[in-house]
Design a protein around this nucleic acid. Structure first.
Lengths: 204, 204
DNA sequence: CATTTAACTGAACGCCTGTTCATTTGGGAA
DNA sequence: TTCCCAAATGAACAGGCGTTCAGTTAAATG
């Protein structure tokens, strides 16, 4: 046996990537073998090398693609307006983008240490773009007196950690809908940056 | 060669555990071999089996010990008083306990999926005790009208994710001291649960 | 329909894996 | 000082690892 009926790189390529994402998210990069990935798409391990140079490149490609899709989606969902409006847009975007991608989120946060130093630097650079996007909003709001933040850099990391943590417990069939989660976290974010406090004070 | 001069299980045991924590935190459980751990303490791989039944038990012991030390330290640092006071104590305790234990934190959050189902259940049970501790504080404060929280369960997870995220960027020689980090995060936590807002409203 | 090319197999490579065990040696007690 | 046991060694086991490649088959091209 050799080439399979109906086989096409356009079809097999995405299937390989999808199987790799699932397996790596479940077991971890180091714990998943090329033979396991191949078996998941009903192939022999050797055939995977039509789709990736090696195992390391496969991991990097998955993570880079995830980060690029994140930045691209964020750019498309860009919003203008005051800091509070933009913070709300960021919060809701983050949740809506990440919740349906629990495998990729898991993978991207867990497998950084399995990247070579060069590949790691590449991913970190993309991650920093996203963080800077949020920090710019916080700095703006701080300057406008709308937010009350002790340290915008720390607040950025704290908010992203809080929001990304949703992926650790969210289940599509769980107690809370995505809409409800958005509302709850938007309230938490608003409070955390001191926006609610200012609002209450202004209402005096 | 066989038994080494000055060798004692009381000494070698902790050395093995410490080397295992460092290596697993750095590379991940699946990526670290028993031979690598043994080499870090200058032994042969076979000798490790004087200290652990197998590789899986080693991981489980490391994680269980970490969680038990967390719960024990938390019990010792217990504070009575109103919800705000106890929330502050919890926040500061969490930071002070976790910051010097970045390896264990990393390991405990990353390697859950490498536990067998039974071992996983054991660790999750301990984790839940800690989460419930925080949620009890939030529920109390909510009832007393001191906190303004949409969903105490979610707020619990959000706060822990935010606080534990510190371990991802904290460096002992970094820009911020532990004291300063405590202050910044206590302000964020206070805000997030709506305590600051209540305070501001009351000051009208 | 003939030819080329893309997609895949299956075997092989050297190396590493967790774990076991007979054997050896040092430490502590009698 | 003799004895016993704790604490290691180092070789061996069967099996899995990432990766390569000659060979085979289906699809695409003309």
């Amino acid at each position: 046996m050799a080439r399979k009926t109906g086989s096409h790189s356009d079809i097999t390529g995405p299937r390989v990537r999808d199987a790799a994402i699932s397996l790596i998210a479940e077991k971890g990069f180091a714990a998943v073998s090329m033979r396991q990935i191949a078996a998941a798409v009903d192939m022999q391990a050797g055939a995977l090398y039509n789709y990736t140079a090696d195992k390391q490149s496969l991991l990097f490609d998955l993570m880079r693609t995830h980060m690029e899709e994140l930045l691209e989606a964020r750019a498309e969902a860009a919003v203008t307006g005051d800091a509070l409006t933009r913070l709300e847009a960021f919060t809701r975007f983050h949740i809506r983008f990440h919740l349906p991608r629990s495998r990729e989120v898991f993978l991207s946060y867990m497998e950084l240490r399995n990247l070579t130093p060069e590949n790691f630097a590449g991913i970190e650079r993309l991650r920093k773009v996203y963080e800077d996007d949020l920090e710019a909003i916080l700095i703006d709001g701080q300057r406008a007196g709308v937010f009350k933040i002790a340290d915008t850099k720390i607040a950025t990391l704290a908010l992203i950690a809080m929001l990304t943590g949703i992926s650790n417990w969210y289940r599509p069939d769980g107690r809370l809908s995505i809409d409800r989660i958005e509302e709850i976290y938007w309230a938490l974010v608003q409070n955390a940056v001191g926006a609610a406090e200012i609002a209450a004070t202004a209402a005096e």
